[in-house]
Every structure is written in C-alpha cells, then in structure tokens.
C-alpha cells in the first residue's frame, strides 16, 4: 500500500518537526514571572495535527519520539515526564477530535496543554514521593491556557496546508 508508506513518512516528518520545535523552545530564555521549567509546548502542534488528521498510531508515535528526544538531551527524568504528559494529552486530543463537536481548535489546544501539564506533574509527584509539588499546578494551569490557545490557533492556521499534503498522497487516518 503506497498510502500507508506515505503515512509513515509523514509521521516521521512531523516527529522531526516536533523535535526541532522542542529544541528551539529550549533556547528561549526563562522569564521570572513564569513557573520554573514551563515551556510553550509548541511541539504539541505536531501531535495535534496527527491526532486530528492521521489517527492514533502516528499521534502516539510522535509522543514517543518526543519523549525519546527529551530523555537523550535532558536526562531520563525529563524523558519519563515528557512521555506521560505526551501520552495523556495525545489521548485527550484524539478523543476530543473524534467525539466532540462543540469545542474549537483553541479549546482542544487548551485542554490538551493542561492535560500535558497535569500528567507531568502527577509523574513528578510520584517520582519525588511527595504531593507538595502539586503547588505548581495553578501557575502551570494559567500558563497552559495561554500556551494551549496559541497551539490551537497555529494548528488551525497550518492545518489546511498540511491537509493538502495528506490529500495529495491519499493519506487517511
């Protein structure tokens, strides 16, 4: 099946984009008013597009790829946190894109960003064996809303162009 090969190739490309975006984000300076370690999570764009158009396997594949990159560059702890946040938020995205008709792109972006933060924080709490890290939650929620809205808007903006690619190669989810 040719379309299947194209789909795998496109997943790889999106995964590479996600990794590049994570790297670019790591170059951003950290501002004092932001919660420590908070990043805009623009690489979720790749997950979001994959969840919307390509289906579960590519979407989760990209989440795994991102976690692997985090583990290689920022250590195992960062990798596990990225994996749990990524899997959780990707699952929620897939569910919302399939089952929900009322939310817009911004809503899905925000909810998945918040889920990403929530997943990461829960893993962090489990790893340190102390629930007090949940004190970061309000700041991360606030930041997740902004970052998620941005991701949703960009995803909607670039979606038509990426859809052209999937249509050209007859890729279906």
């Amino acid at each position: 099946m040719k379309a299947k090969t194209y789909r795998i190739a496109l997943t790889g490309l999106l995964g590479a984009c996600a990794v590049a975006l994570s790297y670019l984000e790591s170059l951003l300076p950290t501002a004092a008013f932001l919660p420590p370690g908070a990043k805009p999570g623009l690489s979720n764009l790749a997950n979001m597009f994959a969840a919307e158009v390509l289906g579960p396997l590519p979407a989760f594949g990209i989440a795994f790829l991102k976690a692997g990159f985090a583990a290689l560059t920022r250590g195992g702890t960062a990798g596990i946190m990225s994996l749990c946040g990524g899997i959780f938020s990707t699952a929620v995205m897939l569910l919302l894109f399939r089952k929900d008709r009322k939310l817009g792109y911004v809503g899905i972006g925000v909810i998945s960003a918040v889920c990403h933060n929530l997943g990461q924080l829960c893993v962090a709490a489990a790893m340190v064996g102390n629930l007090s890290v949940l004190a970061y939650l309000p700041a991360l929620l606030l930041f997740g809303v902004v970052a998620g809205a941005l991701t949703g808007l960009i995803c909607r903006a670039v979606s038509p162009m990426l859809r052209k690619v999937t249509a050209r190669f007859q890729i279906k989810s």
């Binding site: 009322k102 792109y105 809503g107």
Partner: peptide, 11 residues
C-alpha cells in the same frame, strides 16, 4: 471553528 463558545467557558 477556530474558537467556539464552549472554548470560552472552558478558558
């Protein structure tokens, strides 16, 4: 939609 009423409520 880009952004819907439900989005606003969630936000």
């Amino acid at each position: 939609k880009w952004i819907s009423k439900t989005d606003g409520i969630v936000l």
